[in-house]
């Protein structure tokens, strides 16, 4: 049996290597944290449509889903649409104030996202109050995610929508960047105990 006893020189190298490994590990942790922060930006500017062409509920959902597909968030566009329409059947997602929040928890979704669409002329959402919808939030959530995540986002968004300033800011924002910033701020905050 041969036992190798490293000489001084080699031991020094091992020591240096350890420093490198630990530095690399720290670097990796920092990078991972930055990436996580970026990933939690649910509303990216590419997912914002300032001028929806659709004038009807179904068309608006299809138009916004196109954005999701184009940005690579979906496994299957048709499958996702089916799930969103199914939810719409259970109950109309127009919530008043000219806002609708269609949403789908679907195995066809790769990653949670919110798509925002704005319509100046208004969309017929076939809601009881017949109020035209000017702001649409389409929420896409993967099936395997605990259902709580998308419900929490919806809850935060719903609370924010009560704020008239917030609604106005959304309608008046000139760029997608402004809207993305507004929405990320709202969906990341903690609920303040009232």
């Amino acid at each position: 049996m041969i036992i190798c006893v490293p000489n001084e020189e080699v031991r020094g190298d091992v020591f240096t290597a350890n420093i490198y490994v630990s530095a690399f590990r720290n670097y990796y942790i920092i990078l991972k944290t930055i990436l996580e922060v970026i990933m939690t930006q649910l509303v990216r500017t590419e997912l914002i449509e300032l001028n929806l062409k659709a004038r009807e509920r179904k068309d608006a959902i299809i138009e916004l889903t196109g954005r999701l597909e184009q940005q690579g968030y979906l496994f299957s566009k048709d499958g996702f649409l089916q799930d969103v329409f199914q939810r719409e059947e259970i109950g109309n997602t127009a919530v008043g104030f000219g806002v609708a929040i269609p949403h789908g928890k679907s195995p066809e979704v790769k990653q949670t996202a919110i798509v925002y669409g704005r319509s100046e002329l208004g969309i017929d959402w076939e809601s009881v109050d017949e109020e035209p919808v000017h702001s649409v939030f389409l929420l896409a959530v993967p099936e395997e995610k605990a259902s709580n995540e998308h419900l929490r986002i919806l809850a935060l968004l719903s609370r924010a929508l009560i704020n008239e300033d917030f609604r106005q800011q959304l309608l008046e924002a000139a760029t997608s960047e402004e809207i993305s910033e507004l929405l990320n701020e709202v969906t990341q905050q903690k609920v303040i105990e009232s």
Partner: peptide, 27 residues
């Protein structure tokens, strides 16, 4: 009924209105 939007909108609206009129509220 669906428990996803109106529950929270109503809670927020009620809290806001009550505070505006100087009441303490918990929803």
């Amino acid at each position: 009924p669906s428990g996803v939007a109106h529950t929270y909108m109503a809670a927020e609206a009620l809290a806001k209105a009550a505070k505006k009129r100087g009441h303490t509220i918990k929803v």
